[in-house]
Design a protein around this nucleic acid. Structure first.
Lengths: 134, 134
DNA sequence: ATGCACCCTGTAGCAACTATAGGGTCAAGT
DNA sequence: ACTTGACCCTATAGTTGCTACAGGGTGCAT
């Protein structure tokens, strides 16, 4: 498929696709006679992963790391373990944060629909954690 | 508290705190005689919210919007409703994505701990959605 | 054969930080 | 009293991750 089709299917800008190729996140695809990029379904899956991981707040470096889990079939268990473990704790935290944020938004929305404007405690849902200052 | 303490308590760089003030996300705090910024606990809560929302992949503009839910006590139900509703669907999707990503990482980790290096299907967990190209 | 929508490379601009330069403040130690 | 080190100030330049031109080629339909 052509770059515009790939971009469209993944909700990406064409320029961004070329950018990912430039920084080595996407392998350069085959070219047509007219020098157009010609992508296959593996590019589609990979780009989709990159975009959604970015949307979840992972940096490109983190994405690159996650992708090596998939790329490098014959790597040591320790490497895989290390990468996966770090990102797992990260993911757990994000799920918790998103859920409490979602709950508070639902609460505000609910009170709104029954006529009153509830006081929004949205900030408190993501209160300081860990080394809080006393 | 001083800017360094606030930054430290929220896992932020001092420069970033000043940047947020410059773009109007944080209200300018009181100053000491020596012209040092002097923050209170409301700044701590607000900055913590901003940082964690950013970490969840919300843009600064989205964060600004979420914060208005909290700031502007006397706003119309429709405005509140609109903002909350948009971000709620966003949050639901993110939770789903994070969970399947987390599951795949757990699977890889599990197979690793029992000696084998499983083939990593991490890319497939965030497969193209919606307008997939056939 | 001529639009029009798409593709190419290259470069410049924007968002959200991050680092550096050049200088002031303050508590601790000597 | 003074200096040293960790902190603060403003202002500005650099980095990351895109995004938007500029200037030109391709390809299909009218």
């Amino acid at each position: 498929m052509k770059i515009g089709e790939l971009a469209n299917a993944t909700g990406t800008k064409v320029e961004t696709v070329r950018y990912y190729e430039k920084i080595g996140l996407l392998t350069p695809p085959a070219r047509t006679l007219a020098n157009y990029r010609d992508y296959g379904s593996e590019h589609l899956a990979r780009l989709s992963f990159i975009r959604r991981a970015r949307d979840l707040g992972f940096t490109l470096e983190a994405v690159r790391e996650l992708l090596t889990l998939s790329d490098n079939k014959a790597q040591s268990c320790e490497a895989v373990d290390g990468i996966a473990r770090v990102h797992l704790t990260d993911i757990d935290r994000k799920v918790r944060d998103l859920k409490s944020l979602g709950l508070e938004l639902s609460r505000v929305l609910g009170s709104c629909s029954n006529g009153t404007v509830a006081e929004c405690k949205i900030i408190e849902t993501l209160a300081p954690r860990g080394k809080a200052f006393v």
